[in-house]
């Protein structure tokens, strides 16, 4: 912290002769700062994606029935298979349905809790904040194991409900998974929205109160519009998360036979890769990554246009 002792006037005078030297030093520093990330990003993001695309364009051919398998360029053969694969598209439809229902409910709850935490109505805010966030510390696999036990008729403390309604049945299991995901992530989303509520200067509320605005009006007209960027962020992450569902359904498979091996797109990728049919699995992966990317990008752009001042 010795730097604070230099006065601005002195600093300006001394700046000029050193300029070229510091610029070279800065350029070197930038390289050093960026290189580690750039190398890792290239190796474990960029190259794998390119490699997956290449793999998805290959196909296996055999010379006759008993010939040795050979990898040859197949063009869009795998993609043709992807588009004809009804199981895969049913899994996509399933997660889209899941997202359309679960994401608004989860974010709505998160917003409600954040607004309540930010309102003068509550006592014990610190406790609620922690209690609601605690499930975020539970990994998806473990949350699914816990809820799996809670759902099963023989073990559940809610035996009265679970013996009447089988939440792990084919009709309900998607919503059983939705509940697990909601349970884990509501508190996390709540905190993101809550901390952006805290960043709003309180004078705005004072002014609104003087104008006779009620708490609900303040929440609706001032707070919610100001936290839209936070809600967008949580929205994008939730969309990504939904399309990528894997841990929860895969874990719940040992509790429910209603979850097929292609229940979600990622499960389909895993199952296809275990066959092993890497080329088709790679094509699934590419389609899924592209769809996720486009969807969250469009969502980001669409909402940004609306809120941009």
């Amino acid at each position: 912290m010795t730097s604070s002792s230099i006065s601005p006037a002195l600093a300006k005078g001394a700046q000029k002769p050193r300029r070229t030297k510091t610029f070279a030093a800065q350029r070197r520093a930038v390289l050093l700062f960026i290189a580690p990330f750039a190398v890792l990003f290239l190796a474990f993001y960029a190259i794998p994606i390119v490699f997956a695309v290449v793999q998805s364009l290959l196909t296996v051919e055999r010379e006759g029935t008993f010939g040795a398998p050979q990898e040859v360029f197949g063009g869009f053969v795998q993609y043709q298979q992807v588009f004809q694969n009804t199981e895969f598209w049913r899994s996509v439809g399933r997660v889209v349905l899941f997202g359309v229902v679960q994401v608004p409910i989860m974010l709505g709850l998160a917003l409600l809790f954040a607004l309540l935490l930010d309102s003068p109505l509550l006592k014990g805010k610190k406790f609620f904040r922690l209690a609601f966030f605690a499930p975020y510390a539970v990994p998806g696999v473990i949350a699914a194991i816990m809820w799996g036990f809670l759902y099963s008729p023989t073990l559940s403390p809610f035996g009265l409900i679970t013996s009447e309604v089988n939440v792990l049945s084919a009709e309900l299991v998607l919503w059983a998974i939705a509940n697990v995901v909601t349970w884990v992530y509501v508190g996390y989303n709540m905190l993101i929205i809550y901390s952006s509520l805290l960043a709003i200067p309180t004078e705005i509320y004072e002014a609104a109160k003087l104008d006779g605005a009620s708490n609900i009006q303040i929440a609706w007209r001032i707070k919610i519009p100001l936290v839209v960027p936070a809600i967008i962020l949580t929205g994008v992450f939730s969309i990504i998360g939904t399309l990528q569902l894997l841990a929860e359904p895969q874990t719940l498979r040992s509790f429910s036979s209603a979850i097929s091996s292609t229940f979600t797109p990622n499960l389909a990728v895993y199952t296809t890769a275990s066959v092993p049919n890497y080329h088709l699995a790679a094509a699934f992966s590419v389609v899924l990554a592209l769809a996720t990317f486009i969807l969250s990008f469009v969502f980001l752009k669409a909402t940004q246009r609306k809120v941009s001042q």
Partner: peptide
């Protein structure tokens, strides 16, 4: 925007 799970198989 590229989720970790989409990278698992390529990796």
């Amino acid at each position: 925007l590229v989720p970790a799970t989409a990278l698992a198989l390529p990796l």
